[in-house]
Each structure stands twice: as structure tokens, then as C-alpha cells.
Design a protein around this nucleic acid. Sequence first.
RNA 1: GUGAGUGUAGCUCAACUGGUUAGAGCACCUGACUGUGGCUCAGGAUGUUGGGGGUUCAAGUCCCCUCACUCACCCCA
Length: 424
Amino acid sequence: MSNPKHTRPKGTQDFVPPRAEQKSKVEDVFRHLAERFGFQEIVIPTFEYTDVFVKSSGTGSDIVTKEMYTFKDRADRSLTLRPEGTGGVVRAVLENRLRIPCRLYYLGPYFRYGRPQKGRFREFFQLGVEALGEASPLVDAETILFGDEFFRELGISDCITRLNSIGCRNCRPAYQHKLVEFLSSHKDRLCSECQLRLKHNPLRVFDCKQEQCQAVLKDAPKPGDYLCPECSRHFKAVQASLDKQGLRYELNGRLVRGLDYYNRTTFEFVSSKLGAQDSIGGGGRYDYLVEDFGGPQTPAIGLAIGLERTMLAMGEKEQARRRLAFVVWMGDAELDEAQKVLARLRAQGIPAQMDYDAHRMKHQFKSADAAGASCCVIIGADELAKGVYSLKDLTTGRQIQVPVSELIGTVQKLIRAQSVATRR
RNA sequence: GUGAGUGUAGCUCAACUGGUUAGAGCACCUGACUGUGGCUCAGGAUGUUGGGGGUUCAAGUCCCCUCACUCACCCCA
């Protein structure tokens, strides 16, 4: 740890073998599910002109003020490594004149500059879906259902869904105003931190753990009570749909989301396995954003899932044997035959490998074990004389002889049986 | 951006209030076992104690700087 000459940049990570595979499995589950829900993949640049993100996240947001990787290119254009997905997607939908409504999904790396901690990186991976042009509260419910289904398929059982509505252009400012007014009148009873919160994020005061502040909040105006009739109806319809589909959720009036573009429904998924950064995914409606980008008035809703947080929530899986056969050869006399067998296995879609350097069989078995192979095909003088191969199951240590013609089938059966066994 | 904690072998960690040659387990290599991994036994290799400076007769240990990692705040995936 002390020596390496080159190290990865702060906040980045290497996905070394078992984890890289786990990552792509999660991505596969996401792709299949997204397609089942009618989403189509969109691939857009990893960097955009800076104003795309300034526009989408909001000038005052933390992302824009302190978390963006912004740089000038050689022609002095300001570019930014994407800190979030929605802005670029909206830009691409308009620029390519995609027909709206449309449902899109995407996945890839994102970048935010900040101090790394558990579940937070400077380069991180997100899986997202966006439904543009659908206004129904049933779509909100469906998006939430999508997230829930995704986590369920990955076996994340302790996941809680939080739900809120932050109102619209009309009722949100009115509520904020009322809240600030109320809190200001009790300013002297709030802790110092809350006095600051009052200025830039008054809703956060609800999260304060100080008793004095909680006492003040008892009589504070509640977020839910100030929704306009339309927003209120929308929110109730979302809940009714979720109820009907048996999806459990917690109402949380403080759930605000940090990006300026959200309105009405906001939601997030949290897991207890993560530490302080417990949100594994979140999203909400953004009915004004497309218009803000110069497009037609378009209702929209999206969801973003944090890949590495999802993997944290999944926990460590037991290291299973790989789907891999190892060919063991006895001496130079058997080397040609061994290579033929190797090729036959591969031709049948069975991952196979051999150790050319190890001349002692003992070494070859060690290599097989170290590689995590699930079986060894052994080719020695006895086998060649008898017209068979020996096949050793590395999980049980049992070894059998199979006729040359039955090798492929037997190996396939063995590997399949093992992958079923390790999955339980 | 703010705060706290931790850096000793490939990994997990020891080393009393500064005191001789910095240790152990796991992993690794060799052999017992020239047709068999995991088990057992016997041997073996391994360190600029993250880096730099300072105090001291003497620094892994104390002080300063720096770097890295970790956790938390802010905020979010």
C-alpha cells in the first residue's frame, strides 16, 4: 500500500474481478427490467456544455456551485463532466427531435467533486429512466413500482420507499413563504445551524435532532397541508395507485431532493445497510424542465439509481466457483490432445483454460483451484490408452472417467449443477 | 468546502510510560507427495513502519508539514 507508483485519483474506484462481474449483472437486470417497462436505451455524451447542467440542476444547487468538474477545451468552450443524467437526456430529446411521449433509460458514469465517503464517489455509476410526456399520476406510481421491482429482483429486502409531494409553481412558494415566516418568528428558539438552514433550505429544519427545534416545529405549517387542489389530487392518486398495487411506502414531508427541477411527486429508496448516505435511488416529476430547455410544455418524471450504493445494499456474496473448466495434462505426450480438448470445450461455449507453464500436475491443479475453476478435465497416459478422460469436480473432489464422446455433455451438466447449487 | 479518525509484510493486526536485530495469523513459495487442488506436517521468503523534516544518546512510538485512505457534516446516487 505504501509503494505503488501510480494510484487512482481520489474518489474513483477499480472494479476488480468479482466486483466487475457483479456490476454488469446489476446492469443486466436493470436493462431487462427497463425494457419490460417500455423504456428504450439512450446513450449520450459524458460531458456537455456547462450551461446544460446549470440549466437543469439550477444555479443555486450544490451540484452547480461546488460539485461540478468543469474545464475549458482548447477552443475555450466551457465543458462539464456530467453530474446527473436528466439534463443531458432532455437536451438530447430536443436536439434529436424525438417524438414525445417517449420512455428512455440510460446507464454510465457520472462525476461530482466532493469529499468521498461511504457510498459517495467522485466518479460513480447511475442507472436511470425518464418518461417524457406523460402526466398521469399513474405514471408516477409506475416509476416507483419500477424502482421497487428492480431492488426486489436483486434481493434487496430491507429497502424502504419514501414519498412526498413538493407541490407546483403555485403552491410551493406559498408554503415556503409560510414556513419561513413561521420559523423566523421563533428564530431565537432555533439552534444556530437551523438559523442558517432557515436561509437556504428551510425544509431541512424538520430534520434537526435538537429538542428545542423539534418543539418549535410542533406548531409549524405542515408541507402536506398547503398543496393546491390539483397537486393534492395528483398526490392522492399516486398513493391510491401504490396502495392498489400493494406497494408499501412512507410519507415523508421533508423529502425535498436537491435538484431545482423537481415538482409534485418526489421519492427515494433507502437501505439501512449503507451508513449516512442511505439513499440508493431517487427521483421525481419535473414538469417544467423541457419547457425551460426551450421545448414544448411537457410533463415528465424520472428515476436515478446509484449503482455502487445498490451493490452495497446487496451485501457481499459468497465467492462462488466460476463457470470454468480447467484442462490438466500430464506431459508433452498429452499436450496436443489437451489443446484439442480445450478447443472443443470452447467451441461448445464452455469457458476453458489450461496452464501451459506448469509441468507438474500438482501445479496445474493449484492453478485450477486458484482460478476458481469448477472442474478439471484430466488427460494422462492412462486416459489416452483407454480412450477416456478423467473429470474431477473441484467442489466435491470426486473424480470419474468419461468416454471421449461424452465429455462435453458431462462437463456441461456438471457446471450447470454447480451454478444452481451456489445460487441458493 | 468543514470536522474527526487511521496509515506497520500481499491481507488482518501486535510491539508496555521512546530503548538492542519490528512480530503473529492468514495468504505465498518449497518439500513430505515425479498422476491430483482444498486438509495435515516440516521448512522458507517478505518490510524505505505512507513520505519529508524536527526533538533526542536513541523514534514505529513525541512534534511539525505533506500525501493517502476512512467516517461524518453539507448535500446527494
